[in-house]
């Protein structure tokens, strides 16, 4: 079996990423969930497997109903990238909300100072 340079590179990168992911998950580092670990195993494990067995893409293409194996890989890649972007944007959204909440709490913690004497009497709001 002839091995190309790209296969060695992909196998090395996949191995490192899988090792990192496993280490973080099994050490229970902050933010490491099973879902995250599973995604890493599927993405990097899948890339590693394809690098070792390039012909496996033919079976994969047939499995999902696309005749041309390279199209199947590209399509799957797009789907994965979309999923990753979705996850990233969701995380950013959550962080944005947390920042707003922190900013609000900090601002409201000075509410007593914000009242220099009696403002305008307490009746209707704002």
């Amino acid at each position: 079996m002839k091995i190309h340079v790209y296969q060695i590179i992909i196998i090395c990168v996949s191995a490192v990423m899988l090792f990192q992911g496993s280490k973080e998950f099994f050490k229970r580092e902050t933010g490491q969930t099973f879902l995250k670990f599973a995604v890493r195993v599927i993405v990097w494990g899948g890339m590693g497997l394809i690098a070792i067995y390039p012909n496996s893409t033919i079976y994969f293409a047939k499995l999902i109903g696309i005749e041309d194996n390279i199209n199947a890989v590209i399509l799957s890649g797009f789907l994965l990238v979309f999923l990753l972007i979705f996850k990233l944007l969701s995380a950013i959204e959550k962080i944005e909300q947390n920042i707003s909440e922190l900013t609000r709490r900090e601002a409201l913690s000075h509410l007593d100072e914000a009242l220099p004497g009696d403002p305008d009497g307490h009746g209707k709001g704002k």
Partner: peptide, 27 residues
């Protein structure tokens, strides 16, 4: 001499309005 509340960083119209409403309820 009104109640002045300050967000240390800009969070947008919605965030500011919500802060104001919470403060009003506190009063």
């Amino acid at each position: 001499r009104v109640v002045a509340i300050r967000h240390k960083i800009n969070r947008g119209k919605g965030a500011a309005t919500k802060t104001g409403i919470i403060a009003a309820k506190k009063f």
